[in-house]
Design a binder for these strands. Structure first.
Lengths: 219, 219
DNA sequence: AGCACAATTCAACGCATGATGAATAACGTC
DNA sequence: GACGTTATTCATCATGCGTTGAATTGTGCT
């Protein structure tokens, strides 16, 4: 994969001839590494090597490692614009529309790598200031509040998010087969009803546990 | 939190008097750190400091950092025994029984920390040999194969796992409120039906998209 | 009392990392 | 063709890490 072709050839320092998009190659290498190994396990030296370039050049283009991370994180979609559109047409079918939006974003390679980078790096560390937490809260949760009954919006949407983040984990992080290769339409058929139920099913009662369930494992 | 009391007091090396369970305190500190920051971001020096102890002592009790990690990972339940019990009584209500088992394990503090450590550390890195992948496959997926139709077992169970891992992420890693504090019974009422549907709902047809859904966002 | 053993610390090594600053070669422009 | 600018490398620093080995002191056995 190492991108550069005639890169680390001759002796001496100074500018090297060819490569017209070195900056781009560095960014691509960084994205791959952040997406695959997270922030902590990514080393600037490895990124540089992968781009066929001296580590100092990485610092020349992007500043610190944090800056590089932020640069690699640019996500080509804005949830704050797209998510409300899903709910504009009302709750009916919103589950399916939301899931289709979710899948279209995650199946897009340009969006997938930065998202993976964000998720992998965020789940590694604890703390309220985690980027992912803020991202979910302000990019997805906030813009939806208005579309649902005020006092139920949060927990309904978080159930939705729980199912979607579960897909992220199993399908895109762990790549469990056959789930990871399941066609989009099949996935929609399976999980859209789940999301729809979380969105508009009546609040569950503190139901009498009469139905069929034994006391499972408790303790 | 730093566990040791009269620990780093006087001068000189040699054995210190009191603390009867230094080893235990080290292990506890290690668990907290691994669970909170994952493997990579956990430093032996920090663990030692947190236990009020010299880093070399960590190596004295547990060997390398890997060994310490494995020691911190001891999970007091064996899914290979418990999971099949869920399916012994048949598929009816298995969703709820499985979810209750899942919750009872994750709500147990003795199990939660090692599990968090495993999850946090595994999601940080790519690769087939990831402990978590292996764990899920062999601890959960394998023992269940026999309880479902052979050709559907894998994708049905992986859908189940997707919802459960989504709960892990939102409830235990990100601690999204109010989901994180939702009472067990409410959670069961909301998501047990989801699991049950993944387990025994008829295979979705390549249905005509006539119902209510527009073409969402594509591309 | 003496002695083996376990617990604990100290000091240090070797290594990889992020970062910096100066040196050099190619490029674009007049 | 001279010149400022940009791209690139080299050499190096300080830091923090995992790990090791020896030194020291307390504990328990006989």
């Amino acid at each position: 994969m190492t991108a550069a072709d005639g890169a680390p050839a001759g002796r001496g320092r100074g500018r090297r001839p060819g490569g017209p998009d070195t900056r781009g190659q560095i960014l691509a290498a960084a994205r791959h590494s952040f997406a695959g190994k997270g922030f902590g396990a990514t080393t600037i030296r490895a990124v540089a090597a992968d781009a066929g370039v001296d580590p100092a050049l990485v610092h020349h283009y992007f500043g610190s490692k944090d800056d590089l991370f932020l640069a690699a994180l640019e996500i080509p979609v804005d949830p704050r614009r797209l998510v409300p559109q899903v709910f504009e047409a009302g709750l009916d079918g919103a589950g399916e529309r939301l899931l289709r939006l979710f899948l279209s974003v995650w199946e897009d390679p340009h969006a997938r790598l930065p998202l993976l980078a964000l998720v992998r790096s965020s789940l590694g560390r604890e703390g309220d200031e985690s980027l992912l937490r803020q991202g979910i809260l302000r990019m997805i949760l906030e813009p939806i509040r208005s579309a649902l009954p005020t006092d139920e919006a949060d927990h309904r949407m978080q159930l939705v998010i729980s199912q979607m983040s579960g897909l992220v984990v199993t399908r895109y992080l762990l790549v469990l087969e056959p789930l990871a290769s399941m066609p989009r339409e099949d996935l929609v058929a399976w999980v859209a009803p789940t999301l729809q139920r979380y969105l508009d099913a009546p609040l569950p009662r503190e139901r009498g546990v009469a139905s069929s369930a034994g006391p499972g494992a408790s303790g």
